[in-house]
Design a protein around this nucleic acid. Structure first.
Lengths: 242, 242
DNA sequence: CGCAAACTTGATGGCCGTCAAGCAAAGTGG
DNA sequence: CCACTTTGCTTGACGGCCATCAAGTTTGCG
């Protein structure tokens, strides 16, 4: 289980944010029991309203959180990449208000609620970090609210690309100005409140204007400054360590 | 200072959620130092990016949190009514990612970060409650994301009315099927990603269909079932005590 | 009473949704 | 290795929801 050290390295670094955790706390994290599973693409990990007694850490691959309307339409709430802890909130809310699914085949570590609860009870610094994670989640949601409410299709796409690029960069998954992009046009549509047809047309204009390129499941950003300006993007909300 | 007991009664009840806090914790809350101020309508309380060294409790009146785009457009992120703690997050994030303003003239209690931090360090149950508040804030943001992304104007308005009615009801500010509604049509527009002109037309159809009425700064819901059905509203995300 | 803010309504247009069809890519099984 | 199927991408035609612009009316407040 070579991976497990890796997992909690990721987790400790992510939780610590700018300030690293005390050694004892890090060790306690390393001692957490965990179940590591590989999950195929497009599978549900967590069901809205269903019971939940584990939290998960994304080790590899991409996942998304979403809500369904009764008429079957889907709204994606967030995307998650390696290092993310997408459902820490389930420690407090017995049944989640959203579903989570894999986008790509993913490797996910599951940690029982009971152990995380003990951890947060015994190590106040970790409890603070959990709280901080929730606060950052809310900040990210706020950025999405503003995108959905006040930006047009072009600006929405640009904003999402900026966010994903920076988040992937902090976990070292970018390669220069390009990055893996497993999302389908329907995923963009469901995240941005659009249809896939319109996403397609809008991507074409961004491509034709040389701002970015999306090919073979990779996104290449040719003109970061323009992308950022189109999106009116301010990375502060992500609270990345840098 | 008759009000201060009131304040922390509100605060303790809100923080406790379903489970009331231990007595010692409640007492500690009652001992918090605080500054109570009355603030006129349409004044800023908190500035995006500005420093922040207090958290606030809304005692009376309505406030809203918002973000501005560089072109001056505004997106409202949430509305706050008496009993709410809109900026607990500022304990963790040095400079807020949103501004906050009064909607009506409001009475607001300010508590220094340092005292809240001490409180959360000494009383783990309170720390948990603060964390829980952040988690609920995120859940509410998610409900807004879905509204903004996937509902039309009519459904958005219906959803917002459902949310506000239930939240006001838990703090006993409704009167049968009616409630105060100080929001202007431009406020609805900025919250729902619409223009005030379109809000006006959409309100008219809801009124004409006898679903609700908005008159003299009061909202009256004539047909809750229809409103709820139009909105596809599920109150679970609010995690109200009830 | 007078002014400003908010509400109302009409006309017009654009962004984006819907419907539809064809194409490309990727996976499956014989 | 190649039919076959499935999934995703692309493009066109058309229409509707909602934005924009503009003008008039009502409400609220000093």
């Amino acid at each position: 289980m070579v991976m497990s050290k890796n997992v909690f390295g990721l987790m400790a670094r992510r939780l610590g944010g700018a300030v690293p955790l005390p050694e004892a706390d890090e060790r306690a994290i390393l001692d957490l029991p965990l179940i590591i599973r590989t999950i195929e693409a497009s599978r549900d990990i967590l069901y809205e309203g269903g019971p939940s007694n584990h939290c998960c850490v994304i080790l590899n691959g991409w996942t998304c959180c979403y809500q369904l309307l009764t008429d079957g339409r889907r709204q994606i709430l967030s995307f998650h990449v390696p290092g993310d802890l997408p459902d820490l909130q389930s420690l407090h809310l017995p049944s989640p208000d959203f579903g989570m699914a894999t986008v790509t085949r993913s490797i996910v570590a599951f940690v029982p609620h009971s152990d995380l609860q003990k951890l947060s009870d015994r190590y106040p610094a970790i409890a603070q970090c959990f709280w901080r994670e929730a606060v950052i989640t809310a900040a990210t949601h706020r950025a999405w609210i503003t995108s959905l409410g006040r930006r047009d299709a072009r600006q929405k796409l640009a904003h999402l690309f900026c966010e994903l690029y920076l988040r992937l960069k902090t976990v070292d998954l970018t390669d220069g100005c390009s990055m893996p992009m497993p999302l389908r046009q329907t995923d963009f549509a469901d995240a941005l409140g659009l249809t896939s047809v319109h996403v397609n047309r809008t991507l074409k204009t961004l491509r034709d204007q040389g701002v970015m390129d999306l090919y073979a499941r990779r996104l290449t950003i040719h003109d970061w400054d323009t992308l950022r300006e189109v999106a009116d993007f301010n990375p502060k909300y992500l609270h990345l360590a840098d």
